[in-house]
């Protein structure tokens, strides 16, 4: 093949890509934080002995596990506004889609961590006379957290990559900005190679940070 690479036109528009990268990071961070909150609420409902709390949470989680992510984006952007007679901008719709998706998966991560704690730990605390809530906060959750960290990080990386779907709602993330650059330069090979590398650097950096956090959180083992 005889193709002459030319990154010039792409690099001269690097500011557009940088803005896209910034937006990608922004939407990911916001969605991770909101996702954690959604996940905590869901896991508390899911583990509750009250069926009317546990059931809706289980249904919610199953729904998200068994539907494609892009459908959620479209639903929040095109369908929800019809239902509520409001309009959502792409950013809000994308954050809603991402944080409910990740919330559903985080809930499973949290639940996995909690149920993995041996029965003996519950009994050890109960035998001292600890209440359920004291046991949870002092004994179970602190141990569960270190077991949640690896799957939590795994899930957050999924989320980071899924942010690219926000481009379908015309949110100015890295992929959307790349499409703009491409339409101005007609250099798809260079454009998409560049942003692939940008995603790569972003994720590798994030995984380094995550590994440091993981080491600190699992210190006692």
């Amino acid at each position: 093949m005889d193709y002459s690479w030319d990154f010039g036109p792409v690099l001269s528009r690097f500011d557009m890509l940088a803005l896209g990268l910034l937006n990608t990071v922004k939407i990911a961070m916001v969605s991770i934080v909101l996702g954690i909150i959604v996940g905590l609420v869901l896991v508390m409902m899911r583990l509750s002995p009250r069926k009317w709390l546990a059931w809706p949470a289980a249904v919610f989680i199953e729904f998200y596990r068994n539907t494609p992510p892009i459908v959620h984006f479209f639903w929040f952007f095109y369908a929800l506004p019809v239902l509520l007679a409001i309009s959502l901008n792409p950013y809000v719709a994308a954050v809603l889609a991402l944080s409910t998706q990740s919330g559903a998966f985080y809930a499973e991560v949290f639940r996995g961590g909690i149920v993995s704690i041996e029965r003996g730990q519950w009994e050890g605390g109960k035998a001292l006379g600890m209440t359920h809530s004291a046991l949870m906060t002092r004994v179970i959750v602190p141990q569960a957290i270190s077991r949640m960290v690896p799957p939590f990080i795994e899930r957050s990386f999924e989320l980071l990559k899924t942010t690219a779907l926000a481009s379908t709602l015309a949110y100015a993330d890295l992929l959307y900005q790349a499409m703009l650059v491409n339409s101005e330069t007609f250099r798809p090979l260079e454009v998409y190679t560049t942003i692939a590398l940008m995603y790569l650097v972003l994720l590798v950096t994030a995984s380094q940070l995550a590994r440091m956090a993981e080491t600190r959180l699992t210190a006692y083992q």
Binding site: G120, Q121, E123, G124, V139, Q143, S146, Y220, Q221
Partner: peptide, 9 residues
């Protein structure tokens, strides 16, 4: 308990 059930953390 037989298995001690100390808190490992």
């Amino acid at each position: 308990f037989q298995q001690f059930n100390l808190f490992p953390h």
